[in-house]
Simulated assay, not measured.
Amino acid sequence: MTGVEVYRGEKLLFRGGVWNADGSYWLYKEDGTMADTGIFYVSSDGIERDQDGNRIDPAEPSVATILELIDGPVLTHKGTWYAWCGAVCVSILNVLSILFADELFR
């Protein structure tokens, strides 16, 4: 288990221990209780709230999501040089067809 503190500006969001169990994060507060269960509900006025009734911003990531991003997904290269060179050749052919449109289409 690793001890962490997560802040948003000057505000403390989480302080406690994090245990990474095969990709899932278990968060424990300082007092040993579990934290960040991810349970929420939508009230009748359309506002998302957590299990304690506090308002949740749906665009704000949870502490577990922040810790997963810090741990980081494995970065991979999604492209190949062959595809890039092929696209450059197609672009050059397109430029030539535009420049010599009158000779190609009479």
Rank of each mutant, 00 (worst) to 15 (best):
D31K: 01
W19M: 14
E103V: 10
W84F: 14
A59G: 12
R55M: 14
H77V: 06
T2E: 09
G3M: 09
S43G: 15
I47Q: 13
A87Q: 12
T65I: 11
T33G: 08
S24T: 13
R49A: 01
N94M: 15
N54T: 08
K78H: 03
L96K: 03
V6E: 07
G46Q: 02
E10I: 07
A21P: 00
M34K: 13
K11S: 09
G79E: 08
L96F: 09
H77L: 00
Y7P: 01
V4I: 12
D36P: 01
W81S: 09
V6P: 06
W19C: 08
K29R: 15
A101Q: 11
S97I: 06
S97E: 11
T2V: 12
D50P: 02
D22L: 06
M1D: 09
V4C: 02
A21H: 13
K29P: 01
P61Q: 07
R106A: 14
P58Y: 04
T80R: 08
M34D: 00
R106I: 08
V18Q: 06
D71H: 08
G79I: 03
I39C: 06
G46V: 02
A64F: 01
K78N: 14
A59Y: 12
T80W: 00
L27R: 04
S62H: 02
E30V: 12
K29E: 10
R106Q: 14
E48V: 10
V88W: 05
R8P: 02
W19I: 14
V95R: 09
E103C: 05
F40I: 01
D52C: 09
F14V: 00
T37F: 12
D22K: 11
A64S: 09
E5A: 11
R8M: 12
V18Y: 07
V63M: 03
D52G: 13
W84P: 02
L75C: 00
I39Y: 07
V95Y: 09
N20V: 03
Q51P: 02
S43W: 06
L69A: 11
Y41R: 14
V6D: 05
N94I: 12
D71F: 10
D31W: 04
A101N: 10
V88K: 10
D71K: 10
R15T: 08
L27F: 05
T2F: 00
G17N: 07
I70S: 03
K29H: 14
L75A: 00
I47V: 15
D22V: 10
E10T: 10
Y25I: 08
I39S: 10
G9F: 01
L67T: 02
S91A: 15
N94T: 13
D102A: 14
G46Y: 02
G3H: 14
V42H: 05
G46E: 02
Y25K: 00
R15G: 07
E10P: 03
F40E: 08
L12G: 01
S91M: 15
L93S: 08
T76R: 11
V4A: 06
K78T: 01
E5R: 08
